[in-house]
Write a protein that binds this DNA or RNA. Structure first.
Lengths: 250, 250
DNA sequence: CGCCCCGTTGAGGAGAGTCAATGGCTGTGG
DNA sequence: CCACAGCCATTGACTCTCCTCAACGGGGCG
């Protein structure tokens, strides 16, 4: 396709609607800007109107909401292939911020150009619609995670989700993957304290379910882990084909 | 307008895009079915494909997810004027169920007819897009509520949100409103136990912030309540005009 | 070398869960 | 008309998860 670095997005969307590379052509025609942002950069400012659509090509980002009391909640994690904000394309200010967790490279398109691309191709529109559905579904699952699971379960469940999503984007092939989240980020994401995250992680290690070393996580027994966390990948709306170690044609 | 009972939806949408009654005409032309469902009825079955779009006219409903261990998480509450599932209009099975909390009356349209209506009117499309954005925003706020607030704060915050949303739909005019949620439902919604909900509610009463009596809630001091809960209505994406006691032209 | 960031570990305390008993309300049947 | 069952809310007592404060240790970097 026109822009080879769109790969993660392509990998993701094709899981749903079996797009060919040509289906991406309408996107390639536009002035798509590839940007690099350092770790910690603010990608979307709270309250600012959203005039662009972004697609993450590489790196991790997060949607955050700051609280009065100094606390913070990370609403969700955005990985390569994720788009934002498909929903916020209306002239209402963003009610949350988006920040880079690692150095990030992303595509930026004008909102109107993106809409034109969508309108020009039903298949493309369907694929992005699916992406939006999946995103919302991930939000719902985050709600379940926070509302009805213990600290250790939350962590296990999150790890399984991230692993699957990285798979989908073609980033993580095996059971182990790069993991840039600090204890503090995990805490703000999972509604826990950093200390408790540390303890819960240790517990999972002691249970023989995971291994953590130097910025990488290894899911030793995904079956047991899913059992323990109550993880069912159904909410990601992906076909059964992708369920195990080898995603796509990897 | 053609169908007077669409009022709550109309009241909501007009807050965003200032629709006139004529803008609703495309909807009136279709075969819109008005259904009544009793309390407890299942409106959307888990795993079933979603072929219709629903709009709640009267009553409360909830999106739920059942857990392996017998637990349950209520993902969100749906009030008069709310639509579902705008997102699930793709042939993927629903990953959650929708149930009536009170007796509910709702409109049901064929998915395709709805899409036609949307396509025929940019203003209508924009309005529904706004509804979808608001819904997702409410989900995000639920995440913050569960992740970073105490039991009492969660309850206070929820009450304020529901009050605002009922206002938007033109259902609750004053500071007091009908409240059909049992302690158990509140618990499953807020990630608490029914017992703790009961205690937390008592605490809020003792603090002089609310009054609860016989299926109705009265927000005695919304200012203090919002302060206590960290409630900021920004995420509902409504104009400042609706902020205080008198919503719309009430 | 020393600082800072991050992670770990320990101790004590607060918030929330569980189990259980009680009481009011409603609907039903004798 | 009253008795009883069932549902819901409340309250008490006890337990446990998770939080806070704090000390310590390792690795990267000026």
């Amino acid at each position: 396709m026109g822009a080879p670095a769109v790969k993660p997005l392509f990998a993701r969307l094709r899981h749903y609607s079996h797009l060919t590379e040509e289906d991406f052509a309408p996107l390639a025609r536009f002035e798509i800007e590839l940007t690099q942002k350092p770790k910690g950069a603010v990608l979307i400012e709270v309250g600012a109107p959203v005039r662009h659509v972004f697609v993450i090509v590489q790196g991790w980002a997060m949607r955050t909401r700051a609280l009065d009391d100094g606390g913070r909640q990370i609403v969700n994690i955005m990985l390569p292939g994720d788009c934002f904000d498909l929903q916020a394309m209306i002239d209402t200010g963003a009610d949350h911020g988006v920040e880079a967790i690692t150095p990030v490279s992303l595509y930026r398109m004008q909102r109107d150009e993106f809409l034109n691309a969508i309108r020009s191709s039903g298949r493309l529109a369907t694929a992005f619609w699916w992406a939006a559905i999946q995103e919302e579904s991930i939000l719902r699952e985050q709600i379940v995670r926070l509302g009805r699971r213990s600290g250790r379960q939350r962590i296990a469940h999150l790890l399984l989700e991230l692993h699957r999503r990285l798979n989908l984007a073609g980033v993580a092939q095996s059971a182990s993957f790069d993991f840039p989240l600090t204890r503090e980020l995990l805490a703000d994401l999972l509604g826990l304290s950093p200390v408790h995250v540390s303890r819960s992680l240790s517990a999972l290690k002691r249970m023989g379910l995971i291994r953590v070393s130097d910025g990488a996580v290894n899911l030793l027994d995904r079956r047991k882990l899913a059992d323990f966390a109550g993880f069912d990948a159904g909410y990601l709306h992906i076909g059964e084909a992708v369920s195990s170690a080898n995603p796509g044609q990897a």
